[in-house]
């Protein structure tokens, strides 16, 4: 089964890291093939950033995501630039407070940034909440694989916080108000 996942948001939200973690989870712990790419500009913070992952059972040749079946969108500008015309059977996870529009495809609203601030006290883990939600709202990655990949990727001393964020995301992925 091939999945093409596109992440978008603004610089500083960890959009590229999200894709790196997802790719790592799939390639190293779900035993699939994965390729991660990105589009980025000169801004380290702000701007609309995009990253993408292809996950497949077979080796991946053309590496760029062109017609995603899964979206993770964390800003209105990111939605407008990279999320406006999804295919009909796509699933889009939205940060429900930061993205105002809603797509034509199936979508799941995740209050990731709000929850990161309110429940975990650290806005920076909003992207990990979104990743957690991916494991329950879609089938692109397994929970155990994601957990290992998160632990590989986050700074020492922040493991607990990030795992909490992932679990919170998993809950929100189930609860999420879908269209």
């Amino acid at each position: 089964m091939r999945h093409e996942i596109r992440f978008s948001g603004f610089g500083g939200q960890g959009i590229i890291l999200s894709a790196v973690i997802l790719g790592r989870a799939a390639a190293l712990y779900d035993q699939k093939y994965a390729v991660q790419t990105q589009v980025y500009g000169p801004e380290a913070r702000g701007g609309a950033s995009m990253s993408a992952v292809i996950i497949d059972d077979e080796p991946i040749l053309f590496p760029k995501v062109r017609d995603p079946d899964t979206y993770v969108i964390m800003s209105q500008q990111g939605f407008e630039k990279y999320g406006k015309s999804p295919r009909d059977d796509a699933v889009m996870l939205l940060d429900s407070d930061l993205v105002h529009d809603r797509p034509s495809c199936t979508w799941v609203g995740i209050p990731a940034t709000l929850s990161a601030k309110k429940d975990l006290g650290r806005e920076i883990v909003a992207n990990i909440i979104m990743l957690g939600a991916l494991t329950t709202a879609t089938t692109v990655v397994s929970g155990p694989a994601l957990e290992k990949a998160i632990l590989d990727s986050v700074p020492k001393g922040t493991e607990d916080l990030n795992l909490k964020a992932m679990r919170r995301g998993q809950e929100l992925g189930i609860e999420g108000g879908s269209s």
Partner: peptide, 9 residues
Amino acid sequence: EVIGHMREK
């Protein structure tokens, strides 16, 4: 840039 920044196993 595509190959340099791409991640694969």
